[in-house]
Amino acid sequence: MTEYKLVVVGAGGVGKSALTIQLIQNHFVDEYDPTIEDSYRKQVVIDGETCLLDILDTAGQEEYSAMRDQYMRTGEGFLCVFAINNTKSFEDIHHYREQIKRVKDSEDVPMVLVGNKCDLPSRTVDTKQAQDLARSYGIPFIETSAKTRQGVDDAFYTLVREIRKHKEKMSKDGKKKKKKSKTKCVIM
Rank of each mutant, 00 (worst) to 15 (best):
S145L: 01
K176G: 15
G151W: 08
E162T: 03
R164S: 14
V125N: 02
I139K: 01
V160L: 05
L159V: 03
A130H: 07
V152I: 15
D154W: 03
D132H: 04
V160K: 08
K128I: 12
R149E: 14
K178C: 10
R135A: 11
D132R: 03
T127C: 12
R135Y: 06
F156K: 00
V152A: 06
Q129A: 14
Y137V: 14
T127Q: 09
A155W: 01
I139Y: 03
D153A: 13
L159Y: 00
Q129M: 11
M188V: 05
R135P: 01
K147E: 13
G174V: 07
A130N: 06
K169M: 10
R164W: 07
Q129S: 13
D153R: 11
D126T: 09
K128M: 08
V152W: 15
D132F: 02
V125W: 15
K169L: 09
R149G: 13
Q131Y: 10
Y157P: 04
K177L: 08
V160W: 02
Q150T: 13
D126N: 14
K167A: 07
K128A: 12
K167I: 01
K128H: 12
Y137T: 08
F141S: 01
A130G: 07
H166I: 07
R149A: 13
S136L: 09
D154V: 05
K128E: 12
Y157F: 11
L159A: 02
R164N: 02
S181L: 09
Q129T: 12
Y157W: 08
Q129R: 11
E162A: 04
Q131E: 14
S136A: 05
E162F: 01
D132A: 07
K176V: 02
Y137S: 11
T144D: 01
A155R: 00
V152Y: 13
S136M: 11
R135L: 09
D154C: 05
L133T: 07
K128G: 12
S145F: 04
Y157D: 10
I142H: 05
K175Q: 15
D126A: 08
A155K: 00
Q150L: 15
D132P: 01
L133A: 09
K128L: 09
V152L: 15
K167L: 01
K178P: 10
T127N: 13
V160T: 04
D153Y: 09
D126K: 06
G138C: 07
Q131G: 06
Y137M: 14
K178T: 06
S145W: 02
Q131M: 08
Q150V: 13
A155C: 10
V152T: 08
R135T: 10
L133M: 08
Y137I: 14
D154L: 08
V152C: 10
E162V: 01
R149L: 13
A130V: 13
A155P: 07
K128V: 08
F156W: 03
Q131L: 07
Q129W: 13
R164C: 03
V186Q: 15
M170W: 09
T127Y: 11
A146Y: 00
T158V: 02
I139A: 05
D154M: 07
D132K: 06
K176C: 11
Y157Q: 14
K178F: 09
Y137K: 05
T127P: 07
K172Q: 04
I139G: 02
D173I: 06
Q131A: 10
M188Q: 15
D154S: 10
K182F: 01
T127R: 05
K176A: 15
E162C: 02
Y157I: 15
R135G: 11
D126I: 05
Q131V: 10
Y137G: 06
L159N: 00
H166C: 07
R135Q: 12
D126C: 10
V152Q: 11
K169W: 07
D126W: 07
K176F: 03
K167F: 02
L133V: 09
K169G: 14
L133I: 08
K167Y: 02
K178E: 14
E168R: 07
Q131R: 15
D153N: 11
V160D: 01
A155M: 11
K169Y: 10
Y137Q: 10
V160A: 04
K177G: 09
K184G: 14
S145Y: 03
K182V: 01
A130I: 15
G151R: 06
D126M: 10
Q129G: 09
F156V: 12
V160P: 00
T127W: 12
D154Y: 05
R164E: 11
K128Y: 10
V160N: 02
Y157G: 13
S136Y: 04
D126H: 10
R149Y: 12
D126Y: 10
V152F: 13
D153T: 14
K167N: 10
V125S: 13
D154R: 06
R135V: 04
S145D: 06
A130L: 15
F156D: 00
H166L: 10
K128Q: 14
A155H: 01
S181E: 15
F141N: 01
K167D: 09
V186S: 13
V160R: 03
L159P: 00
R164L: 04
F156H: 01
Q131W: 04
L133G: 03
T158I: 03
H166M: 13
V186A: 06
E162D: 02
D154T: 10
L133H: 08
A155F: 01
A155V: 11
A130E: 04
D153Q: 13
V160H: 03
K128D: 12
T158P: 01
K167E: 04
K165Y: 01
D153G: 10
V152M: 14
D153K: 13
L159S: 00
F156R: 00
G151L: 07
L133S: 07
T158K: 04
F141D: 00
D132L: 04
C185L: 01
I142P: 00
R149S: 11
K169R: 14
R164F: 03
K172S: 14
V152E: 03
Y157M: 14
Y157H: 11
F156T: 02
V152D: 04
G174W: 00
R161P: 00
D153P: 07
Q131D: 08
I187V: 14
K178S: 12
D153F: 10
E143D: 14
K176S: 12
F156P: 00
D132Q: 05
D153V: 13
Y137A: 12
D153I: 13
H166D: 08
S181A: 09
A130S: 04
K178V: 05
D126V: 08
A155G: 04
A134E: 02
F156L: 10
L133N: 09
S136K: 09
M188G: 14
V152G: 06
T158E: 07
V125R: 10
M188S: 13
K172M: 14
Q129Y: 14
K177R: 03
R135I: 05
K165S: 03
Y157R: 15
Q131F: 06
Q129C: 08
D154P: 04
